[in-house]
Computed example of a mutant assay.
Amino acid sequence: MSNPLLTDDEIATALKDLPEWTRTGASIARTVEAPSFLAGIELVRRVAAEAEAANHHPDMDIRWRRVTFTLSTHSEGGLTRLDVALAREIDRLAQES
């Protein structure tokens, strides 16, 4: 199933509701600082479970308590609604951690 790329205006509108996320070219990213290393690992595990269920997988970089999530729909070559939906889910999970 194809997921059309979002326009620049659609991305800008979506990012208004995702203030922790920053766009760089064809991706958006957010860094979360967890209260502990194990809390960061647990956040990664929870995001991984949600990503697997959505069949949409972020790049994740773990540096002690700091976890950076980078989203892009590689098959489409840019940002789609899948990225926005996963960013919202990551925000929800990060708030719970």
Rank of each mutant, 00 (worst) to 15 (best):
M1V: 12
M1Y: 12
M1H: 13
S2Q: 12
S2V: 15
S2E: 15
S2N: 15
P4Q: 09
L5M: 06
L6D: 01
D9P: 09
E10I: 02
I11L: 04
A12V: 04
A12I: 02
A12R: 02
T13L: 09
T13Q: 11
A14D: 02
L15M: 02
D17L: 06
D17M: 00
D17F: 01
L18I: 01
E20K: 14
W21N: 08
W21A: 11
W21H: 10
T22I: 12
T24A: 14
G25S: 12
A26T: 15
S27M: 14
I28G: 07
R30D: 09
V32F: 01
P35Y: 07
L38T: 13
A39C: 01
G40Q: 09
I41Y: 08
V44H: 10
R45E: 08
R45Y: 09
R45P: 02
R46W: 10
R46P: 14
A48N: 10
A48D: 11
A49S: 14
E50K: 12
A51N: 05
A51P: 03
A53C: 01
A53F: 00
A53H: 05
A54L: 07
N55D: 15
H56D: 06
H56I: 10
P58K: 04
D59V: 10
M60S: 05
M60N: 01
I62G: 07
I62P: 08
R63E: 13
W64I: 08
R65H: 02
R66G: 07
R66E: 14
R66S: 12
F69M: 00
L71H: 06
L71D: 07
L71W: 08
H74S: 15
S75I: 10
S75F: 07
T80W: 10
R81M: 13
L82F: 10
V84Y: 03
V84E: 03
A85R: 13
R88C: 02
E89S: 05
E89L: 11
I90Y: 00
I90L: 00
I90F: 00
I90M: 01
A94E: 02
A94H: 01
Q95Y: 05
E96A: 10
E96R: 05
E96S: 11
